[in-house]
Write a protein that binds this DNA or RNA. Structure first.
Lengths: 344, 344
DNA sequence: CTGAAAGCGCTTACAG
DNA sequence: CTGAAAGCGCTTACAG
């Protein structure tokens, strides 16, 4: 039914070896132009397409990248993650690699080892790994295949983990955001994390917030709540915050999606942004500037991250085994929600 | 390095056949419990994981589903598509299938045939295929593998295409949305499509809008513009609309993301929603009710669609070859943007 | 209840 | 410049 390389060889009047050499463009094979043309014509005539499983089995490489997402629920609600998927997909395609999507289950665990051993993928990009996964990831990287942790701080290298990482510096950026609020005169600055702090990125942003308060001597005003990815959970987290006795004049919100919910909760409470409460958030998703109050936020570059992750993985696949950290610079985008200006 | 089934067989003191039977749970093999246990223990002890390529080559099935996305750019900006990816991923996982992501390139073309012939996937879910792709999809389905077109109207069956489809009825739903505006007394109802009308869903929504106008005898007021997926493109499309001489008191916007841009364009133009201009849009993305004016919109159920697509594909994979259309009901969610009520 | 052996469709030393 | 042949690691009739 589907033609195999043997049919192509027969039609072209050569051996399967030659067919393989021509189709895979093997340099050192010294195929004559005449032969090459014959093979190419035969393959085209038969509509030949190599069987991927056979190729993979024989060559030991699957030509596919595995993208591991945290709890897949993130994708339902968080625009940031979608952009990561899109850019990784795009770049993989550009590099002639296929893309396999995996996600961790409810408990956040994925059998990385099984995936690695199955030979289904040549390398792994793991998005926002949990702190508890670092040991296993390191072992996967050492034993089986290259691995890039997306959205991880470079500390993985500092602490002896061997795999590559890419990410913006959540800690520094969070400080940047909070310092902006401090500079505007705010003293009582609350924090709403965008998810559970088992996620490294959530945790780092919280630490950055706290560190900024410490340096300014404002920790006595520190109060915080955690949302759970959706705008709705942000709404609820903000309500919990409002019920506390401690007051605040500004909130550093863990991401933009959650900030949408926070804005609504504040409005529903009769509070105006930025007049009564100033907000700075994180991500600069495409809708951030279309929010009820255009959001002042930390702009990250997920597309660049995604592309870079793929590039780093391919580097390692080529045998360039140095684990590196690629840092993506971020920037504070000032819009209306912090009350410091009206640029949009 | 990685153990193979032969090592497992050796350790368990059986043949590879037996190992394969036990691990694949082959019913009719009549493996004794004692043997089964021995094999399982040996496999566990060695940390054995079957090689996927070998399995696929030998069995003729890859146990993976291919998910084909339209222009990958959609994912950058459209929350709807992300939910589709998430649900398909989730359901695939639940069904023990792997998920391969493919996307069409800039010109919107993908070599479906190559993908099908490579044997990399057992079946295909194609999201929002372009009208021009139907012939090829039909052929792929006939020649190579089951295929489900996601977001397609059932007309594919009516017109003789053989593959299965799933989707809400864009035409009917658009009419529903527009009729709601008509019922509220609007006569001059403009339309802003969310993308180019080469996409079947964009086209159907436009037709639904126009059909509603026809039935109400309002086509003389019909004006339209098309955005290009992002909120920003919605902003621009709305500006173009505002520059026309024709006036309007309501807009049916092709999706929520674009509606965010439309809202901003109207505000910047000094128009209030819903007082001056009423808006109904489409999708009910998670942020729709957190928009500057909570959006009245058609709620679709992408998660259900995604899950159903996978289920339909698996049915066909099991040999149940009937092409069917699964229709997902939608509903109009009334919020503030149409001015008819204040439910949220 | 279990095993020997063929076969899936490629790649890749190796030999010439 | 090209080909015969082994091998990748499984599954699956077939035989017993």
């Amino acid at each position: 039914m589907k033609p195999t390389s043997i049919e192509v060889a027969r039609l072209a009047g050569v051996s399967r070896t030659t067919v393989s050499f021509v189709l895979n463009n093997v340099k050192k094979s010294g195929i004559s132009d005449a032969t090459r043309t014959k093979v190419l014509n035969a393959a085209a005539e038969l509509g030949y397409e190599p069987n991927a499983a056979a190729q993979s089995l024989a060559s030991g490489s699957s030509a596919t990248i595995g993208l591991v997402l945290p709890d897949i629920q993130h994708l339902y609600v968080d625009a940031f993650l979608a952009r990561v998927v899109a850019s990784v997909s795009e770049e993989s395609r550009a590099q002639n690699m296929k893309l396999l999507i995996e996600s961790t289950d409810g408990e956040g665990s994925l059998n990385y080892r099984r995936l690695a051993k199955s030979g289904r993928v040549d390398g792994l990009i793991v998005v926002n790994p949990r702190e508890g996964d670092y040991d296993e990831l390191s072992e996967i990287n050492r034993l089986f295949m290259p691995l890039v942790a997306f959205g991880s701080p470079s500390r993985s290298i500092a602490t002896g983990y061997e795999f590559s990482t890419t990410g913006s510096n959540n800690f520094i950026n969070a400080k940047l955001a909070v310092n902006h609020l401090i500079k505007l005169g705010h003293k009582k600055i609350a924090h709403i994390g965008f998810a559970s702090s088992v996620f490294a990125s959530v945790h780092s942003r919280e630490k950055g917030w706290f560190s900024a308060l410490e340096e300014a001597g404002l920790v006595q005003y520190a109060i915080k709540e955690f949302a759970n990815l959706s705008a709705d959970s942000g709404y609820q987290a903000c309500q919990r915050l409002l019920q506390k006795k401690a007051s605040f004049s500004a909130i550093f919100v863990g991401n933009d999606t959650v900030a949408f919910g926070v804005l609504k909760a504040l409005f529903d409470h009769g509070l105006r942004v930025p007049e009564n409460i100033a907000i700075v958030s994180y991500d600069d998703i495409p809708l951030a500037r279309f929010a009820p109050v255009p959001l002042t936020t930390i702009r990250t570059f997920p597309e660049e991250h995604g592309q870079k992750s793929v590039a780093m993985l391919l580097e390692q696949l080529k045998g360039n085994v140095i684990a590196t950290h690629h840092k993506i610079e971020s920037q504070l985008v000032i819009r209306n929600s912090c009350g410091s200006g009206l640029k949009s």
